[in-house]
């Protein structure tokens, strides 16, 4: 298995250790699984509290007890590869997280959307997905009165819906229009993506998948049936594919002037 092809690289099946795990250090999912399989010592080292995970549990896909506080999960989107009219990432997100288009674009939740950008001077057109940018300094978390909007230690920005009172101040503060308010009663949500009327939500970077050592649904589908434009990984790990790509290509973040340091990077924009 080689890492030259983006598709193969990010689609390593969750939890399974790649045979040449050492030789392809960029394989994110595999690397994380490796750490876990490394046993209880790694688990203990990463968590300050006494571990609940039994010693010798060691199954590669054992549920994790704690996130990796040293990680900074991020996305790299290659705009040149993002196909015109392709919305695989959007459909995958809808399927994974249980939101849908009900024909009311103004009130429907949209965790991820395809934006068409046209340079009015040159006429150049590009398409790209925009979702929660998982800022390092998230304005939504700054303004949230109850602390419901927060950034996990590994950089994923979430809404703790147990604390969200539905004031929508985060939606006022978000520079990316990444958040949606749930305007109606919902039923039959996905077990791993709780969502409910009167609270605010946004892309979770598929936190439930990341916690199992998998990659976000949008990235997975983009790489299997889409243009292979999305990459997920740990920006803090210099050995990861994403960190290397970010280091070697000129990538940009959206509205870098705001200084919020998004975890989502775009190339060829």
């Amino acid at each position: 298995m080689s890492c030259t092809d983006n598709k193969t690289c990010t689609c390593t099946p969750a939890g399974s250790l790649p045979a040449d795990g050492e030789a392809s250090p960029g394989i994110e999912a595999g690397r994380r699984a490796f750490i876990k399989a490394g046993g209880a010592f790694a688990t203990i080292a990463l968590t300050p509290t006494v571990t609940l995970m039994a010693f010798g549990g060691g199954k590669a896909n054992a549920a994790q007890e704690s996130l990796d506080p040293k990680a900074r999960w991020g996305l790299l989107i290659d705009v040149a590869k993002c196909g015109t009219g392709c919305s695989e990432c959007v459909s995958a997100c809808q399927k994974e997280n249980g939101w849908q288009d009900t024909g009311h674009p103004e009130t429907d939740a949209q965790w991820i959307r395809k934006v068409t950008v046209k340079n009015p001077k040159s006429g150049a057109v590009a398409e790209l997905p925009v979702m929660c940018q998982h800022c390092d300094e998230p304005p939504c978390a700054d303004v949230c009165p109850t602390g419901a909007s927060f950034k996990r230690a590994d950089g994923i920005v979430l809404v703790d819906k147990h604390l969200c009172i539905g004031c929508r101040y985060c939606m006022m503060a978000c520079p990316y229009k990444a958040r949606s308010f749930i305007h109606e009663t919902l039923i039959d949500q996905k077990p791993y993506a709780p969502r409910g009327k009167g609270t605010v939500e946004s892309c979770t970077m598929c936190v439930h998948r990341v916690d199992r050592g998998e990659i976000p649904a949008c990235v997975e589908s983009c790489n299997s049936t889409g243009g292979g434009a999305m990459m997920f990984g740990n920006l803090n790990d210099p050995q990861s594919d994403i960190a290397k790509r970010v280091a070697e290509l000129t990538s940009t973040q959206l509205r870098p002037d705001l200084g919020v340091d998004p975890g989502v990077h775009y190339t060829y924009l």
């Binding site: 609940l52 995970m53 549920a63 994790q64 704690s66 927060f150 996990r152 703790d160 916690d211």
Partner: peptide
């Protein structure tokens, strides 16, 4: 929600 604990207990 905050620490990513996904243990089934």
């Amino acid at each position: 929600v905050h620490e990513g604990n996904r243990l089934p207990e």
